[in-house]
Design a protein around this nucleic acid. Structure first.
Lengths: 245, 245
DNA sequence: CGAATGTTTGAACCCTTTCAAAGACGGTGG
DNA sequence: CCACCGTCTTTGAAAGGGTTCAAACATTCG
């Protein structure tokens, strides 16, 4: 009997969404929780749901029931004007929490669509609030997560109100770089999940400007872009663009 | 003995910050709380602190200890770049909660300055979290307030990334109008607490553009501005500017 | 392989910025 | 109470960064 043929005892618990077993627990809700508390959280989290590229996680106007933690994949959040014009408010990746804007009015205000095949943990908000009421560490951590969203949004406000096209794109690339890096992926070599148009939309620029700026960055040796494959050659110099000018 | 000379029994409890007696409790934290719960909140809120115009409520880098509820007055929140350049992230008025962005890193990230003489209630955050852990209604309401801040910031992001100068200023005026209206003041006639430069800074425009746009709005009969005194003549048409174009 | 979608590049235009200067207001002190 | 000074605002003219329109090219997917 070769070693490969030894039957592996499959732990069924690990096949469903399990915060304790999740490699993202350091980025997601369970950060800093005891094993017991994490298991309490486990009990309220619905097993993973799969979404194919283009699937809606939820739509603007939907009743708010749950927050969604991204297990893996990539989403965009956006508003759709009457004329069909899209307005992207953010991109979200593994370990991030979606739907917090809906708490205030019990209704989702934006659409959320998967930009690649993704898996999501659904967290019924009533259950979560019950739990945060009994686990102070979880409550505090949830507050931190909401606070972080506020910080991020305000940072993006400043980007939009103060930065020129080059700075915006540099900031965008560095932001992706940090987030990929924090998830164990390369911070200098990654794949864009969104089109030039979506980047421009998010950054308050047109797709043409994004394309031209990519070209300029490339000419300056700051990076290489082939379609959606991005390689950043000099994070420091890219960061310099933010400060300078 | 005339009626005016009857000695008035002064209730000392009402002279200090008291959520139960506050006319803003419908806008602020105590919304929807029972009398008992409101009194619990009262006990942790430090009595009002006064700020003169130009005083800092807190500074970027300060340790985060408390949230601040504005009792009356007007504040601006901003970042100060190394070169001394100001970047305004928001204006805050009576009934609004300041400092939530600081929860995530236990440190304030922005400066907050009074734009007019103001009074503020300090809410030690550790105490508040203790209380939200025992009063589910308070916890839920606090979550709604944070969520509302996220909504507002995302709305401002969309304003900055999608709107032209006229639309931005119209949105800004309508936003002030709603907020003054919700506080029992006239939604069509109010006093600007900030300079043209501060408005422009916040809206991602220059003071000259603000000035010119005010002039244009006035020529079109949409409003009257004398210095900082604003009178809106047609809220509907002002709202039309947002949608159209 | 062909159609649809996404990207690059060019040229003209436009909104906003920048630079400049004059004008108005408000607060302070004589 | 008025004059003065600093701050804020208005307005003009020129410049510029990004948009818009257009066309060719590349890529992906059915």
């Amino acid at each position: 009997m070769t070693i490969q043929s030894i039957p592996i005892k499959v732990n069924l618990a690990n096949l469903k969404a399990s915060c304790s077993a999740c490699t993202l627990h350091e980025l997601c809700l369970p950060t800093g929780l005891s094993l017991d508390d994490t298991e309490s959280l486990d009990r309220i989290v619905n097993s993973r749901r799969k979404f194919l590229r283009g699937d809606y996680l939820y739509r603007a106007g939907d009743n708010f029931q749950s927050l969604y933690a991204i297990r893996n994949g990539f989403f965009k959040m956006f508003e759709l004007a009457e004329d069909g014009c899209e307005k992207i408010t953010g991109f979200y990746m593994a370990g991030e929490l979606l739907g917090m804007d809906a708490i205030s009015e019990d209704r989702h205000h934006y659409h959320v669509v998967a930009l690649e095949d993704s898996t999501v943990c659904e967290i019924p908000f009533a259950d979560l609030e019950h739990l945060t009421g009994t686990i102070p560490a979880l409550q505090h951590h949830f507050h931190k997560i909401m606070s972080r969203e506020i910080m991020a949004d305000q940072g993006h406000m400043l980007l939009l109100s103060k930065m020129k096209a080059e700075q915006r794109l540099a900031a965008f690339l560095l932001n992706l770089s940090h987030r990929f890096g924090a998830r164990g992926y390369s911070p200098t070599h990654f794949y864009l999940r969104m089109t030039r148009e979506e980047i421009g939309n998010y950054l308050g620029l047109t797709l043409e400007t994004i394309s031209r700026t990519f070209t300029r960055f490339q000419e300056e040796g700051l990076m290489t872009v082939h379609h959606r494959d991005v390689e950043l050659h000099d994070l420091l110099r890219l960061n310099g663009i933010l400060i300078h000018t």
